[in-house]
């Protein structure tokens, strides 16, 4: 989850800021492979995801009407993984599938749509196979609805709280509602199989991926006190690599969130990134600064980056 930097090459960090100023926008672009991340700590991340889910079952939700979309998401995710990752395979004979991930010794046969052939809900089975959090948005009445998901690394939101909300309600706390109204119309026009990518970002005090409201007692107090000893190693840039896929069988929108954390010390090793992050933090509109909770943390990070590049 935490990685070393590097602006180029295989596995380069997806630095999220394209300009010297930042405004909230839908900033989607067509997705390209790989859509699913495999970090050096792949096995650890997957184990952490399972640990959080098993300890707190409310990190998974699924409405009864999301059954087809959940199976659709499962097959899309396993197929995508098999296409992108060496050694992993998804074989199919009619509606019968065999999923094999030799890296983790996982082998599972199942029959599409038959819940009795999987040890758990298709969405949690899928969510344990990938580093990304998984959300299924159903399309009805010209709107999107949060029908199902497995989210263990939420950034200051709660899947269980948001379950059943419309797209507009989900984005209620975001300062620019018109951006999300446009985004929803865009997503509803996506055709089966279409895939887009967007990046979101924030700053945090440590390398904890799980900043869910569910786990707020574990990280909130320190964040409130802004208890930092060594800014460069403790404060992290949090980039969320988000993918939006129109699932082919059900027409639901699959929303994937991959969390990539980079300590400021690593940001500082790429002068262009450091300068851009400083510029963005210095010019952040007040409502965005407040929404991202960067009131003090933003200036602290910018000051540190300025000093370390001097």
């Amino acid at each position: 989850m935490t990685e070393v930097g590097g602006a180029t090459g295989e596995g380069a960090y997806p630095f999220p800021l394209a300009r010297d100023t930042y405004r909230i926008s839908a900033n989607v672009e067509p997705a390209s492979a790989p859509m699913l991340h495999v970090g050096a700590d792949h096995a650890d991340v997957l184990a952490l995801r399972s640990r959080i889910l098993d300890a707190e079952p409310r990190r998974f939700v699924a409405a009864p009407h999301a059954a087809a979309a959940s199976w659709d998401a499962l097959v899309w995710l396993l197929d995508r993984t098999a296409r992108e990752q060496d050694g992993v395979s998804l074989e199919r004979d009619g509606l019968r599938y065999r999923w094999t991930d030799p890296r983790r010794g996982v082998e599972q046969e199942f029959v599409f749509g038959d819940a009795s052939t999987l040890p758990e809900h298709p969405l949690t089975f899928a969510g344990r196979q990938v580093e990304e959090d998984v959300v299924v948005l159903g399309a009805r009445d010209d709107r999107l609805w949060l029908d199902a998901g497995m989210v263990v690394f939420a950034s200051v939101w709660s899947l269980a709280f948001d379950h059943g909300m419309s797209f507009a309600e989900l984005h209620g706390p975001v300062p620019s509602p018109e951006v999300f109204a446009r985004a929803e119309r865009f997503l509803l026009r996506m055709q089966p199989g279409d895939a887009y990518r967007r990046l979101n970002w924030g700053l945090q005090l440590d390398d904890r991926p799980d900043l869910s409201l569910d786990a707020h007692p574990a990280w909130g107090p320190r964040r409130a006190r802004l208890e930092v000893h060594d800014v460069g190693s403790e404060v992290h840039l949090r980039t969320e690599v988000q993918h939006l896929v129109r699932l082919p069988m059900s027409g639901a929108v699959l929303f994937l969130i991959g969390v990539r954390l980079l300590p400021l010390a690593e940001v500082a090793t790429v002068p262009a990134w450091s300068a851009r992050l400083v510029s963005v933090l210095d010019t952040l509109p007040e409502e965005v600064r407040s929404y991202k909770d960067l009131g003090v943390l933003g200036s602290m990070a910018a000051d540190w980056l300025r000093r370390s590049s001097a």
């Binding site: 999301a66 979309a69 399309a139 009805r140 055709q191």
Partner: peptide
């Protein structure tokens, strides 16, 4: 060309 969705059922 790839199939296009236009008249889906309402799952609820």
């Amino acid at each position: 060309r790839s199939p296009r969705s236009g008249f889906p059922p309402v799952e609820t």
